[in-house]
Design a protein around this nucleic acid. Structure first.
Length: 566
RNA sequence: UGGGGCGUCGCCAAGUGGUAAGGCAACGGGUUUUGAUCCCGUCAUACCCAGGUUCGAGUCCUGGCGCCCCAGCCA
């Protein structure tokens, strides 16, 4: 196998493909597909599948089709079709100029159904949905055969044609495969192949059809028609594989793709089912599918996760058949690894506390050079204005210093990043006793050099009060307050939504940014030194202020020290 | 009690009979004008359990145990 660049780590599916190639199967060809149903936005679990399928095509010089599994118009729409394409492209994968739709095969699917009927392998069944369920039996008892199971081929052909012609109402009849009502595998107990759906406009085929094929019938045929070699899906379809093979074994298709199943991704502090994500959106628990707290691809994009980091994450988690729940720290660390290398550094004060440097001349200002990246000179530098009044973060000042606290304390000194060492001479408080301003003095001999005879242990960030730009900053935390919302809900007999973290979004409306941030473009990412990585949101906040989303925090060893009573 | 899967470090995960990779987390230490980054070190006599085969088993066999999925005219 192999290619020059990014080759994903090996896994059991690659072993299968390697063996197939060695055996000369499919003429050594590898063709996969990513088959989303356009009934919602893609999430990080889909990203895992996308990276797997498109990654296989990339590494084996094969192909991967983007194919919409659009057989249930009731739940699907064009907005989702478009969003899915945006998301796959954003992740970094392409598909030439052809997007595939299962609905492109509706005519052929119909003819294959007729073929099955002609072979006596499918029949029109008049049982209601409830009756069908009752006839199906249970997990431990076999089902009973439908009274319509022995209709003649001619009658079945006539009825199926009339189903298509719209002669029967919804639910009146279905087309079923005639397999085995006693099979221990419930999927083989004469599964439904076609159902009647009047009055829904399909986003691709409009009102052309009033019967729609089921997944189990559509999927294997779509794969075969596209010459897919390896049809990769998640574990819950393992029980469907005998049906997948049955369909292909009994109709005249050009090839028989191999279905392979892997386990889906579970992520701590998140829910991953489309039903639940849809609910969070529809019921207003989040601002939309692209809310930065959502585990959707659109949400991660808005949050500022680089696509390369998401791809790297998918490589790091691997592909197996074992149930798994990945820790959020793995995702966050993957994002940090990418951002640390690529994000230019800036200074921003989130909780401004005014500092007046009394021995700095009023009306004076100077431009101080600052590296855009401390380890990568190629990113260049910008200059930062310094003057008599600045803001520092309220968290960087304490009247009394806890042990190991190395920021500014009353009477103490601290280094202003890329500027001077200052000393806090006086603390000004309001009537409530809250610190509202600091009067300091600076040491003019400390620009770029350490003072003689004393060690300055702390460095803090700051922004010029005169030159800084105001901004809104949104701090995101995990959407759920427990690692496993579904598990907690089941255990405590509650709804998973009761575990939504009330502090998953904290909005700071009076932040101060260094001037270099003023011209940033929507989507641009920076590290706000000592705070984290932030991404400019496309929207504007109150008063037209820019909104900066916190992508991820920096790793923080201080809070731990502080909590240990340090 | 039917069928299909899965069980290797806190979380992922290599391993394909020859004597337990790697990543994340954690914990020590060093560098540092980001308590960041970076660097160094520690971290499974042990692979769900019990027997067995073998010179040798996480890998093979037998029997248990645990967890996940399946009874949509959803995908």
């Amino acid at each position: 196998m192999g290619s020059n660049e990014t080759t994903a780590p090996t896994n059991f599916i690659r072993h299968i493909i390697d063996a197939d190639i060695a055996a000369g199967k499919n003429g050594g060809r590898v063709a996969t597909r990513f088959p989303p149903e356009p009934n919602g936005y893609l999430h990080i679990g889909h990203a895992k599948s996308i990276c797997l399928n498109f990654g296989l095509a990339r590494d084996y010089q094969g192909t991967c089709n983007l194919r919409f599994d659009d057989t249930n118009p009731h739940k699907e729409n064009q907005e989702f079709v478009s969003a899915i394409q945006d998301d796959v492209r954003w992740l970094g994968f392409g598909w030439g100029d052809k997007v595939y739709y299962a609905s492109d095969y509706f005519d052929q699917l119909y003819r294959f159904a007729v073929e099955l009927i002609e072979k006596g392998l499918a029949y029109v069944c008049d049982l209601s949905a409830e009756e069908t369920r009752a006839y199906r039996g249970t997990l431990t008892e076999p089902g009973r055969e439908s009274p319509y199971r022995s209709r003649s081929v001619a009658e079945n052909l006539d009825l199926f044609q009339r189903m298509r012609a719209g002669e029967f109402p919804d639910g009146a009849r279905v087309l079923r495969a005639r397999i085995d009502m006693a099979s221990p595998n419930i999927n083989l107990r004469d599964p439904t192949l076609y159902r009647i759906r009047h009055g829904v406009v399909h986003h691709q085929t409009g009102a052309e059809w009033c019967i729609y094929p089921m997944y189990d019938f559509t999927h294997p045929i779509s794969d075969a028609l596209e010459g897919i070699t390896h049809s990769i899906c998640t574990l819950e379809f393992e029980d469907h594989r005998p049906l997948y093979d049955w369909v292909l074994d009994n109709i005249s298709v050009p090839c028989h793709p191999q279905q392979i199943e892997f386990s889906r991704l579970n992520l701590q502090f998140a829910v991953m089912s489309k039903r639940k994500l849809t609910q969070l959106v529809d019921e207003g628990f989040v601002e939309g599918w692209n809310d930065p707290r959502m585990p959707t691809i659109a949400g991660m994009r808005r949050r500022g996760y680089p696509p390369a980091a998401v791809r790297e994450f998918c490589d790091r988690i691997g592909i197996t058949k074992a149930d798994n729940t990945v820790e959020m720290s793995l995702l966050e660390n993957t994002v940090r690894d990418d951002l640390n290398v690529h994000a230019p550094r800036r200074m921003a004060v989130l909780h401004p506390l005014k500092v007046v440097i009394e021995n700095y001349p009023e009306g004076q200002a100077e431009e101080l050079p600052a590296a855009n990246h401390p380890q990568d000179p190629a990113l260049g530098e910008r200059s930062i204005p310094f003057c008599r009044e600045i803001y520092i973060d309220a968290e960087d000042f304490r009247e009394e210093a806890p042990a190991k606290f190395k920021r500014l304390v009353a009477g103490g000194e601290v280094r202003l990043r890329y500027a001077y060492v200052i000393r806090c001479d006086q603390v000004i408080k309001n009537a409530q006793g809250e610190v509202i301003e600091l009067r300091c003095s600076y040491d003019p001999d400390t620009l770029g050099v350490n003072p003689e005879g004393r060690k300055i242990k702390g460095v803090i960030h700051w922004v010029s009060a005169q030159h800084g730009a105001e901004a809104e900053v949104r701090l995101y935390d995990r959407l759920f307050s427990v690692a496993n919302p579904d598990g907690a809900a089941a255990k405590e007999g509650k709804d998973y939504k009761e575990f939504i973290n009330p502090d998953s979004l904290r909005t700071l409306t009076a932040c101060m940014l260094e001037p270099a941030l003023a011209g940033a473009q929507s989507g641009e990412l920076f590290q706000f030194e000592r705070e984290g990585y932030f991404c400019l949101d496309p929207a504007q906040g109150a008063g037209g202020k820019p909104i900066w989303n916190r992508t991820v925090t920096l790793r923080d060893s201080w809070t731990k020290i502080e909590q240990q009573g340090g």
